[in-house]
Design a protein around this nucleic acid. Structure first.
Lengths: 250, 250
DNA sequence: TCAGTTGTGTTATCTAGCGAACAGACACCA
DNA sequence: TGGTGTCTGTTCGCTAGATAACACAACTGA
């Protein structure tokens, strides 16, 4: 297991803290391995730990009664688990599963709540992240209604690529179908189309992205919208007066 | 315009404050009329006021580029506008439009931010509301993907009924179609089906709900899920120690 | 090396909702 | 009273994706 220092400064949310704040916070964390398939949160269950991924990918999945789980977003080192702790509720609304191995800084939820109050501006930063996350779900809700599967698939692959920092992804069509809440046949068709356009190639759970820009063009605008929103909100001038709300460049 | 006292205690979120806290908060508010069609928030614009509806209905609508607005939720006296202020971001992610006249307590966003810090537990209560709202959007995202129009329509009508506190609603099929992000023909068919089951009747923008329980049975579970979630989270034992997260009865 | 498993491709049928167009009923107003 | 606009109902063809079933290639492990 890599030492804590290796992870120091490797989560983009924690990077928004000052060096000394971050040092202080990371001191309360332990660095743990994320293994493919690990379940980090179960809907309706009390969350014991809050995670700040350093490497790897975690899916955040909502289930409604009578339907399969639907991937709401993928969380990598740009984000955190679980947003509910941030909002003072210790029950997770979603399931969280490791989709790509890696490691994360982990802190007991109660310690996290305490630190949130102790570290100046930390709660301002993370509330902004909650806003970004809220906006992402809004985007998804409309995306699910208006956008075609092929575009949604391209979007999901791009989200993987971003967080894996690699053009080679390991995920089967069956898994993608589950994530998107559709049948596998649909993914095969959509993936086949992307393949014929020479944007990706596919073989037994190994996706290679050949043309990133082409894939972006095939994706619905939701990919870009989410990304822009993250950058705008998270990198808006940090006011060190927590009374002042964030002003956004439109 | 009704006097402030008439509204005192008429918003369910403010009801969670103690009498003196509420009196104090309402002192910073003004009671304003909500007129049908009033636009209270524009996506991307800075929010000037935070609203606590006392009577009437406001729709909260997300637009993604290239698609029409989609109603994310209806807000009545059980909620507030705009959740972004709560999260320290002063830009609205959604459009807010008055769908049924009424009135609301309105407070300048900056004063609101200040009060949020001054009034003990107020921010705990409202962060919980943000959690409920987040969960609602999660539910919608899955609902849009998995549920049939007829069920989604029933759900929307029930949401109206709840907030209007009346079985007579004033909304055309065209408007419902826009809210649901579908064509008007689809709503005509779905509404026709509900009518044939004697659950509702329809005539030129006037809907009458005849069989509330039948309509609930025709609705997707999302209606109930949202409602239960609101009650569970908002009425969980208020801990007066803001360090302790909310424990949920599963 | 061969059997069993897993992942991908393909086909055929079915359905919800889209898209466009039109008809009739009602309401308001000159 | 008649004209015009609004709201609801209906039709027809079309498409995306569901559903089900099967073929086959590639990997795995005895």
């Amino acid at each position: 297991m890599p030492i804590i220092q290796a992870a120091f400064g490797s989560n983009r949310l924690l990077n928004l803290l000052t060096d000394s704040q971050r040092k202080n916070f990371v001191g309360s964390c332990e660095l743990i391995n994320l293994h493919l398939g690990d379940v980090l949160a179960v809907p309706g269950d009390t969350v014991a730990y809050v995670y700040f991924p350093v490497e790897g990918i975690i899916s955040w999945e909502k289930q409604i009664i009578g339907s399969p789980f639907l991937v709401v977003t993928l969380i990598g080192n740009e984000g955190m688990l679980c947003i509910n702790s941030l909002l003072g509720v210790d029950v997770s609304p979603c399931r969280a599963i490791v989709q790509k191995s890696g490691f994360a800084l982990r802190i007991p939820a109660s310690t996290f709540m305490h630190q949130l109050k102790q570290i100046a501006d930390f709660d301002v930063i993370l509330k902004r992240y909650a806003y970004v996350s809220y906006n992402q779900v809004l985007q998804l809700a409309a995306c699910n209604l208006f956008h075609l599967l092929e575009n949604r698939l391209a979007r999901l692959l791009l989200m993987f690529q971003d967080r894996a920092q690699s053009d080679e992804l390991h995920v089967t069509q069956e898994q993608l179908a589950e994530m998107l809440g559709v049948r596998r046949v649909g993914v095969t068709k959509a993936a086949g189309s992307l393949q014929r356009q020479n944007l990706i190639s596919y073989s037994r759970g190994n996706v290679i992205i050949h043309d990133l820009n082409g894939l972006k063009a095939s994706s619905c605008i939701c990919y870009l919208a989410d990304k822009k929103n993250y950058e705008h909100i998270m990198h808006a001038q940090t006011s060190h007066n927590t009374n002042t709300p964030v002003q956004l460049p439109i």
